[in-house]
Design a protein around this nucleic acid. Sequence first.
DNA 1: TCTTTTTGTTTAGTATATTATACAATTATA
DNA 2: TATAATTGTATAATATACTAAACAAAAAGA
Lengths: 185, 185
Amino acid sequence: MNAIHLRIGHNLQRVRKQRQLSLDKVADLTGVSKGMLHQIERGDTQPTVTTVWKIATGLNISFSSLIKEDESAISIVKRKDAPDITEDNGNCLVYLLFPFNPQTQIEMFTIVLKPKGSYVSTPHNEGVQEYITVISGEFKISIRDDTYTLLAGEAIRFTGNVSHKYRNETDENVILQVVMHYPEA
Amino acid sequence: MNAIHLRIGHNLQRVRKQRQLSLDKVADLTGVSKGMLHQIERGDTQPTVTTVWKIATGLNISFSSLIKEDESAISIVKRKDAPDITEDNGNCLVYLLFPFNPQTQIEMFTIVLKPKGSYVSTPHNEGVQEYITVISGEFKISIRDDTYTLLAGEAIRFTGNVSHKYRNETDENVILQVVMHYPEA
DNA sequence: TCTTTTTGTTTAGTATATTATACAATTATA
DNA sequence: TATAATTGTATAATATACTAAACAAAAAGA
């Protein structure tokens, strides 16, 4: 995932080239100086929200279209040695794959539950959706008063606004892939 | 329409209060200093896009939700004496009601065609929609090879990617209300 | 009550966003 | 070709975003 100011730079240059406008012309339309526009396109500055707003207004395009991710963008996450979070005396390891992205409203990580490991999650905000896919091992999850057992390849989805508990009662590691989706508000 | 940095300030403070978070806590979650957050909420600064991005990420909310307009916001446009644009030797006057808003993708203005006045519009970009409502007078519009005559209370909608011409062949003023809608890209 | 902690606010220093101007490189025009 | 106009680039000066720290005001605990 590219930094937001780089995306703005690319998007700006794309529409400018598409409409065959010079920097001077865009400066004229938007009220943002030519030099600034140049720096924004090159990504060597982090513009103010009002500057970006002026650009969007002057070019008659949405703010979102300026900050949107290039659909061809590719992010690769390498295998990490150290977890980002450790719970339950090191028996629950959380490896962040993709941090929360305000664009997609999604966050993704891998959880390793060591033998006898467990994790209790406090309820999330209203409307949060949680998707868990079991990569390997035998996984037990308790939601409210019910407990479910899932094996590798199986998955579960639930709204996260209720407390839930992950458990690994076996002697083998349990590996999970978790996708969180947060609501707009 | 409030300035974007004021909207961000209000929206930020709203979700912070809603979640009962202190400035310190938000600073901790987002990596943006407490002082900066305070200034943003108060609207006495115009934050960088990356700063706003950090806030959105840290609070798990979308960028849009931070820049969105308060639905209860009200904008009133007073009657103006001078037109924003003058065409055809002063026989076509354009009064801007609402400038282009990247949020809604809409722009709105009033056109006064004086007797025998006319206006030729070059084609807009692909996907632009134009809505014209006749407030008073007898209005003639030519799109491509066809000419339409509209009276007060009547309206027309067409895609603006083709050249079109407004005409007033009478001896009375023609007053139009025009809404432009621009596509996302 | 007094102390301690937590809250929002201010301030001074610094990093940097932004502009205006000048420059270089390219394209148009004669 | 020479000249002019138009393009993107660089630079220096200024305005301001941002942080860290100190401060004040309110709430909580004793």
